[in-house]
């Protein structure tokens, strides 16, 4: 698709600016874009959030319904995540079942939430071995200008934090807030030439050689990582990404509140 082609002029311009530590939109290399969160925007969902990170916009909704637990975890609730890169969001996105990019995106977001133990699945048991709450998170990209990983992570976290278990709807006791324990935040860096930048926009993402998403918990411990892209990163670069993920994770947690 034509929209994939980044002009040589744009590529050279971005790289020339980076040599002086500058970016096209005036940000520093370690700055993230403006973050706007609208939690609880969808009443038909049990939890929801619409998140704008610069011009990137995503919506996440949570549905919580009773279901059968997995045989190996009979007293634990179930957490499932899906992401859709719908054609509304970008001219290069096509309709159809989720492709590899959408699946990787959902799995990386899922891993950060799951491994941090954000949702206390033990408290989602209704009758051990028989019935538990199943928590479905569906994420849709609405407007894509780079860094869907962090936008989707924030939207998911905010949707879960506002989610309510609809006990009354199913005759399973009172409505109660979904038990959440912490706020896992992912911070994504990409490598362009030999520079590492945070929260890439579309053009930056397109000309980058490698990507690293690092999810931290409230203590600044690492809970999930994913390296993407065909390029490589060095140990030193990794170290810088980790430091930045801890620092920016804190800042984003503050915005979420």
């Amino acid at each position: 698709m034509s929209e994939h082609v980044i002009s040589e002029i744009k590529r050279d311009h971005i790289m020339n600016l980076l040599k002086e530590g500058k970016r096209e939109d005036g940000r520093g290399v370690d700055e993230i874009r403006d973050l706007k969160i609208t939690a609880g925007c969808v009443e038909s969902a049990d939890g929801s959030a619409r998140v704008k990170l610069g011009k990137t916009e995503v919506i996440a909704g949570v549905k919580i319904i009773p279901g059968t637990p997995f045989a190996d975890t009979p007293d634990s609730g179930v957490l499932t995540m899906g992401a859709e890169l719908i054609p509304m969001a970008h001219p290069s996105f096509e309709s159809g079942p989720p492709g590899e990019d959408a699946i990787e995106l959902a799995r990386v977001v899922d891993r950060g939430i799951r491994e941090s133990g954000m949702v206390d699945v033990k408290k989602l048991c209704i009758t051990a071995g028989e019935e538990v709450w199943m928590c479905f998170v569906d994420i849709y990209a609405l407007d894509y200008d780079g860094n869907l990983f962090d936008a989707c992570n924030i939207a998911t976290v905010c949707a879960l934090r506002t989610a309510v278990i609809p006990g009354e709807q199913y005759g399973k006791g009172e409505n109660r807030p979904l038990p959440v324990t912490c706020t896992p935040i992912s911070v994504t860096s990409v490598k362009i030439g030999n520079d590492l930048i945070l929260d890439p926009n579309f053009d930056e993402e397109m000309i980058s050689s490698a990507r690293l998403t690092v999810t931290t918990d409230d203590e600044g411990n690492f809970r999930a990582m994913q390296k993407g892209g065909k390029g490589s990163i060095t140990r030193d670069e990794l170290s810088l990404c980790l430091d930045r993920a801890v620092e920016k994770g804190k800042a984003i947690r503050k915005i979420i509140g």
Partner: peptide
């Protein structure tokens, strides 16, 4: 035209896809 109901738009979760 592609009309799509998001999974959480209705009271029972709608399975994604047309």
């Amino acid at each position: 035209c592609k009309y799509n109901m998001q999974a959480f738009s209705v009271s029972d979760r709608k399975r994604p896809g047309p």
